[in-house]
Amino acid sequence: MIEHQDGEPVEILLVEDNPGDVRLTEEAFAEARINNDLHVTRDGQSALDYLHQRGEYADVDRPDLVLLDLNLPRVSGMDVLEEVKSDDALCRIPVVILTSSEAEEDIVESYENHSNAYLTKPIDPAAFIEMIQSFEDFWLTLVKLPPEPNGT
């Protein structure tokens, strides 16, 4: 299990509305042996509520990393990204765009809004699992994730 330096598991928030993509991501994490806490919200508004710890998410831990689809109901992924990166309490959380869009304007806008990476979902399940394993190797093994602003 990948852990924080203090031994706590890394909290990952997956923001994805497609049930098939959620299932495939969960399977890829399981096959890649990413045994961390993976939480799922299925629209942009729920993701914002989760991140701000509002409503039904009042007692959740803030995620250490967000995997964000761009094409979401209620609030778009780009709007979620903009809000996260403009909020002092959230802006240190790495946000990785995980989407099917290969549109250059989406890539440019994501980086202009300070995403930490942009990954295009492969259609082939084996290629998707390989991408998740590469994600694990980089983001959860090599990268040092920041603590929350209050030091926890």
Rank of each mutant, 00 (worst) to 15 (best):
M78S: 09
S76G: 13
K121Q: 06
T141P: 00
Q133E: 15
S100W: 00
Q45M: 11
E130I: 09
L90N: 05
Y111A: 03
P149R: 08
D87R: 03
L98I: 10
V75P: 02
H52A: 11
G77H: 05
N18R: 09
E102C: 09
E16D: 01
A103W: 06
R92V: 12
D137E: 14
N116A: 09
L140Q: 07
L142M: 14
R42Y: 06
V95H: 01
D61L: 15
V15H: 04
L68N: 02
N71R: 14
V108I: 15
F138T: 15
E3S: 15
A103Y: 11
H39G: 03
K144C: 10
L70W: 06
L48Y: 01
V80A: 03
R62W: 10
P146I: 06
P94Q: 04
V40H: 04
K85I: 09
F128M: 02
R42A: 10
Y118S: 01
S110T: 07
I2H: 11
E82A: 12
Q53D: 07
V66M: 01
I12H: 00
S101A: 05
L70H: 06
E31C: 05
V84R: 00
L14G: 06
V75T: 10
P147N: 10
D61W: 13
P146C: 09
H4V: 09
N113L: 13
S100A: 14
N18M: 10
L81T: 08
P19K: 04
R92M: 12
W139L: 07
T25C: 07
P147L: 13
E26M: 14
D137T: 13
D88W: 15
Q133M: 13
G151K: 06
I34C: 00
R33M: 14
E82L: 10
N113T: 09
E56G: 12
L90T: 05
D106M: 01
D37E: 15
D137R: 15
D49H: 13
K121T: 03
P149S: 04
G77N: 07
S115I: 08
R74V: 13
E105K: 13
D43G: 02
H114C: 14
D64V: 02
P125R: 04
N18D: 13
W139F: 13
A117R: 04
S76C: 09
S86Y: 05
G20E: 09
E102S: 11
S110M: 04
Y50A: 03
A47R: 02
Y111T: 03
H52R: 15
E11V: 14
L67P: 02
A127F: 10
A117C: 07
L24T: 11
F128L: 05
E82Y: 14
K121C: 04
T141E: 13
I2F: 10
L38A: 08
R23A: 15
V80F: 02
A126W: 07
I123D: 14
V60E: 05
D6V: 03
P149C: 06
Q53C: 14
A127P: 01
P73K: 06
P147K: 14
L24S: 08
E136W: 10
E82D: 11
E83S: 10
E109T: 15
V66I: 14
G44S: 05
F128D: 00
F138S: 05
A32W: 06
H4G: 07
V66Q: 00
I2V: 13
